[in-house]
Nucleic acid binder design. Sequence first.
RNA 1: GCCCAAGUGGUGGAAUGGUAGACGCGUCGGAUUCAAAAUCCGAUUCCUUAACGGGAGUGUGGGUUCAAGUCCCACCUUGGGCACCA
Length: 846
Amino acid sequence: MSRYSAAEIEARWQEAWDKAEVFKAERDPSRPKYYVLEMFPYPSGKLHMGHVRNYTMGDVIARYKLSTGHNVLHPMGFDAFGMPAENAAMAIGGHPKTWTYDNIDQMVEQMKPLGLSLDWSRMFATCDPEYYGQQQSLFLDFLQEGLVYRKNAVVNWDPVDMTVLANEQVEGGRGWRSGALVERKELTQWFFKISDMADELLEALDGLDNWPAKVKLMQANWIGKSRGLQFAFERVDGGEAISVYTTRPDTLNGASFVGISPDHPIAKAMEGDAAVDAFLAEARAGGTTEEAIETAEKLGFDTGIKVKHPLTGEELPVWIANFILMDYGTGAIFACPAHDQRDLDFCRKYDLPVIDTFFALDNDTPVSKEAFVPAKTEKVRWVDHFAGLDVATGEEAINITIDKAEAEGWGEGVTKFRLRDWGLSRQRYWGCPIPVVHCDACGVVPEKKENLPVELPDDVSFDQPGNPLDRHPTWRDCACPACGKPAKRETDTMDTFVDSSWYFARFTAPRAKTPTEAADAEYWMNVDQYIGGVEHAILHLLYARFFARAMNICGHLPESAKEPFDALFTQGMVTHAIFKTEGADGRPVYHYPEEVELKGDKAVLSDGREVEVIPSAKMSKSKNNVVNPLHIIEAFGADTARWFVLSDSPPERDVEWTAAGAEASHKHLSRVYRIASELDADAKGSPEADEQLLRETHKAVHDVTMGVESFGFNAAIAKLYGFTNTVAKSKASGAAKREAAKTLAQLMSPMTPHLAEAVWEMLGGEGLCTLAPWPVADAAMLVEDNVTLPVQVNGKRRGEITVPKDMDKAEVEKLALAEEGVMRALDGNAPKKVIVVPGRIVNVVA
RNA sequence: GCCCAAGUGGUGGAAUGGUAGACGCGUCGGAUUCAAAAUCCGAUUCCUUAACGGGAGUGUGGGUUCAAGUCCCACCUUGGGCACCA
């Protein structure tokens, strides 16, 4: 008997797969294709358990589909542009390019031992000029189609470092390096016209049947379609009327002021006045995130301008308010403090009137500190409504108000979207250069396609803040592609979301001289199964959906690929306990898992000190709770790591990595190996046991297949534990047991492919287990003749009866009422009602 | 602040509205062993009972239903996202 040696087995079978090129994907119209894709990683240089979990899930699907006769495309690449490379260059010197490519090499080296069924020949990184050159080509096509344009937008500005900051570089309203108070500053930037497709992107969500409902809901809310009323407030001084958009026109009677954004033209026109400037500076302080704006203290400035209420003719003041966004609606609102908490807080602060426009049906206390904001579907009682309403829901009132405004001609019902255009300009080096040139004579001129890729220069330094492209001595200078005169290259690069918005399409023809190759895109698209973290639920997935449409317009993707991901699965994180003690200075000290010993329910250090255990925390370098997959592979093998990340939690939820769990997984795999190696094929058994084992095998095939197909990997693994026990304990003949064990190997193959091959070979399986056709369960073998039904009395289980599976309801009822526990519970009383759910349950109502 | 999830034994978790706790870990007991490791067998929600039983129980409080972990309402806690982290 040999022992289970993962290291030996895994190296051997990986070599065998390589040699047979089993994972190389080639177009083959004679076979159905299947495209599995996991969200590609950022090359941090360190593979973590989250990656292992993500790729293992994809691998299970890919290997399963391979054995069901599909031509599988399962590629891998790297999302390689972005800030960390520049930060590394600043922190430790060196060049973002070398840092990135070194990291990619390291990650590939760390991924290979996992035995993933990847077609490595298709690998690319988004920072390869070959890739980003094609991206520039796409940009030019989008530009030509009018899908890209320039406008002003605000950025986080660090006034000390004189540089633009990413949101994550703003900490508590200050720049992370300089510590300066961050301001919002306007810059001219490039935008994708995603808002043109807002309605389509929303409508098409309905067709994404195999996407998680929560992701679709988040996207729908993000797109934020709303119907409201747009109308204008006439200015008392005769100036240009102020147009406002509101989703609650029914509360117009409760208006107490008109609010405009600090970026509204009227506010801008007032700049130069010392008081206005001071206020605007204050209002523009802080970062650009919606969170920062929403949670900032509400500030207002009375412009002194008065407008007329369109219905009552009453005069309302116009205030500049820091919480009004210029990007949404018209950048101006009317405030109804009685029914909006934000407006109420503002009015209380600046002593503006609060007017109730409706009350709850059973309560007419005027609003004081809390705004009354019922659901739009709730009936409320209106106070002197201008459309003559008495009791009506908000929804009804809104529609009636819009109709009235349109009939009387002072406003119109309009549909607006919350979705803003996608700003793609980044004032950074390590990204895809935007292929345009600024010419004094010709303006903004697209680079010629034959000059692509516009490559990033290598000779740059990161010893000062800001974009090195801006201060590059020669790269910036060029000839205008239109007139040939000296011109300046655009120094902004593209958002890295652009890179990840079409990589899935590029994988279908990664070396093509155009962004895609029609025949390949036609054959391989769509991605049949996309797998990644929920953190990408909105932005990445929305941008990719936009890109697929834009690429279709430009002829780079077929119409059928406008929704590029047929099915989406969002997996949870891998977490790990944090082991914490307190240092002498009272600050927390975090210990590595290896330093900590678990004794019962306590955790102690080697010196005996007790350690606080914080469970289920996101793995984080600073908390010392990161588990390195390489260490696990060294100690137990890749199959153990793969088995564990799949076994312990449902895939969509977080899984906590525990040393005990990893050991248990390894123990189980060793057991399977031992069972196979100790199997005596000549052993005799009973025909009944053979029959029973065969039934159990078919049941296992059915259950595991269902589990794999429905992403119930943990459930599939639970079945495999059960089936392993069944095989081990079966009294069937050696020959029957060998067949069952071979099926066990096949069923385990997607999860633990190396072990499966070893067992398969040991039991005389033909060829590679990986390529063996997936077993099919015989429906006839799954049905049992008898079923055991629990019998409840008033919903409480009092006994059970075993009956033939298609027994008549009346017969079942009779047997149930005769059951001992049921009779005891009924205590001689006649049942009021008996509910028989065939094959399920009997409930007696007493 | 806004949007979206999730909360079940000591523990990770299972459960088309139909026996709550499958399967794994841990713990306890037993077998094997000179002894141990490994392995194998069994028990394991809590309270109560000698036992048969009985009662309670899926974050909290309500509701719908013959039947609720599952559906509805409100709340609490934790996690994800909020447009320049990827």
